[in-house]
């Protein structure tokens, strides 16, 4: 039987579809024409302009701060939650599991809107702190799921063995359980970090004056049609950074002897 060509062709088209907008963005960031999409010659002036803008740097720092705190806090809370869900079977855990799952299906706009109403009802003024609380909330569930998956592959006999060999409960936890689970916890943390850095909708609802993150700042620049080529330059740098990160992690995780 002759295999159908449809899957191969579709995959090619889909990959082109994925990379076309990004390629256009990179090309535009070097185009000296400000408004028209025509090529008017190579320039680096948008990159120079980018580095002159303090607000972009401040937003980047805000984004990193929020993402670091949200990732660390959700790693702690999520690991705890995963342990409870894995270890105990009870009505409480059924309810717990349901609570962990709800944020996964709640659309961003509902989460943003509901948190905004909570902060207003509680009389909390909006700031970077409210943004961080919101980010921890949507990261928590993802970290729990990732750690839980790792726990399911975990062989409890190893801990038993350590205990038989004279380790205390704490020693067994610190020397056996944590190191084995660590890659899972770290993967959860990385996922939380990327989710936090990427978030626009929830942040937009709960951010206060002066607490712009990179996505909300870029969004308002786009809405005002202000310095669009600078956004292209910024996007290109972010892309480059992502590619380097992927490349590095590929190199790090590659088996040594092959």
């Amino acid at each position: 039987m002759k295999p159908s060509r449809i899957p191969l062709v579709t995959t090619g088209i889909v990959l082109a579809f994925f990379y076309l907008p990004i390629a256009a963005l990179v090309a535009k960031s070097f185009n000296s024409s400000r408004f028209s999409p025509e090529w008017k010659g190579f320039t680096l002036k948008w990159y120079e302009r980018l580095f002159e803008r303090d607000d972009i740097l401040a937003a980047l720092v805000n984004s990193l701060k929020v993402a670091l705190i949200a990732a660390s806090a959700s790693m702690l809370l999520g690991t705890c939650a995963a342990f409870a869900l894995h270890r105990y079977k009870s009505r409480l855990q059924d309810a717990h599991r349901m609570m962990v799952n709800v944020p996964l299906v709640l659309p961003d706009i509902l989460m943003g809107m509901s948190l905004l109403l909570l902060f207003i009802a509680a009389g909390v003024s909006l700031s970077l702190a409210t943004v961080t609380i919101a980010h921890i909330t949507f990261c928590l569930s993802y970290v729990t799921l990732v750690v839980l998956a790792r726990l399911q592959d975990f062989d409890p006999n190893i801990v038993e063995a350590a205990r038989d060999l004279g380790a205390t409960r704490l020693q067994a936890f610190v020397k056996i359980t944590l190191p084995i689970l660590f890659p899972g916890i770290l993967a959860g943390g990385l996922l939380a970090f990327t989710l936090s850095i990427d978030d626009y909708v929830v942040t937009f609802f709960v951010k206060g004056p002066g607490s712009d993150t990179l996505p909300t700042l870029v969004y308002s620049m786009i809405k005002k049609s202000k310095e669009l080529p600078v956004i292209n330059a910024l996007s290109t740098l972010m892309l480059l950074f992502t590619f380097l990160l992927v490349f590095a992690s590929q190199r790090l995780t590659r088996p040594v002897n092959r």
Partner: peptide, 30 residues
């Protein structure tokens, strides 16, 4: 039904966090 203390300790942080920042806010919407 009696719930043991270690289970409560492990469940409380995420449970309370989600209750306060997901369930209470959704109730407030309504």
């Amino acid at each position: 039904m009696k719930i043991r203390k270690p289970e409560l300790l492990a469940t409380a942080p995420s449970f309370l966090w989600l209750a306060l920042f997901v369930f209470v806010p959704v109730a407030i919407i309504f």
